[in-house]
Amino acid sequence: MDISLLLQFFINGCMLGMMYALVAVGFTLFFGVLDVIVFSHGDSVMVGAFAGLSFYLLCMYLSPGMPVWLVTLFVSFAGMAFVAGFGMLVSRFVIMPLRSAPALNTLLATMMLGTVMREAVRLFFPDGSNPKPFPRLLPDWSWKFGGALLRFDNIALFIAGGLLIVGVALLINHTRLGMAIRAVAQDAEAAQIMGVDFPFIVLLTFAIGSAVAAFAGLMNGLYYNEINFNLGLLLGVIGFSSAVIGGLGNIYGAILGGFVFAFLQVFGTVAMPFSSAYKDVFAFGVVIVLMAIFPTGILSERQSQRV
């Protein structure tokens, strides 16, 4: 096979991996802190993309002359803030009230919430059932390496996503609030006995996880230049699988899992004798095998590690 084509696939794998890792981080944070799987998390990614698009349109309407870099920053931060706020509402009014109920109820409630979010965007966003073009906000500089095209926007998105994940990891491992998040993940009651404001930490965790998901949504829009109301469905399942194969509750596991999944897809496209349409079948198949080999995830310890 052509080396430049391989490079192209590698770049694609990196981009997908970063996107999956961003989604998986949220799954793993929520599981760590509250022992719940929040199935609407994938749809938060989609809401992030649509919020970004809406803020872009708002920007264009209010001040069409705004410089592009400023629009990009505004769209990113506003989109992330919007979904962070939405995530806090979800945790306060859906997750927390179900805390004393069996975990299965939370699972079901968040699955239904995801459907509500998808359908709400489809119904209430103008012409929401059709794919929407997402603006190209990043410069279209590119460099040719042999036959492979290295695009500036890809690099920028990859670096931004990486910085975001590093930022979350630093926050959790090296700040007082991060220590409180870890304490709640390890023993919520003991953390409260130490004086940790538990409801606040839950809100904070949902704000962080949802903002990171929103960034994945923006990244998705900027990478494919098209978004649609059900993009969160597959991303959610992939993000969840990534978190599980990495070791649910472990941030580094979520990142590893995201990239493992992305490169399985790429491998399924490039190296398998069947059509690339089966890349997901191949990737999920390998995930099942991986789960059989590492029942608690690749990076988890004997008992499942939290955050």
Partner: peptide, 16 residues
């Protein structure tokens, strides 16, 4: 105690 925290972090948690 918080098992995945160091001794020092556990003490810090006490003075949260």
């Amino acid at each position: 105690i918080f098992p995945k925290m160091t001794v020092e972090e556990n003490l810090y948690m006490g003075a949260y």
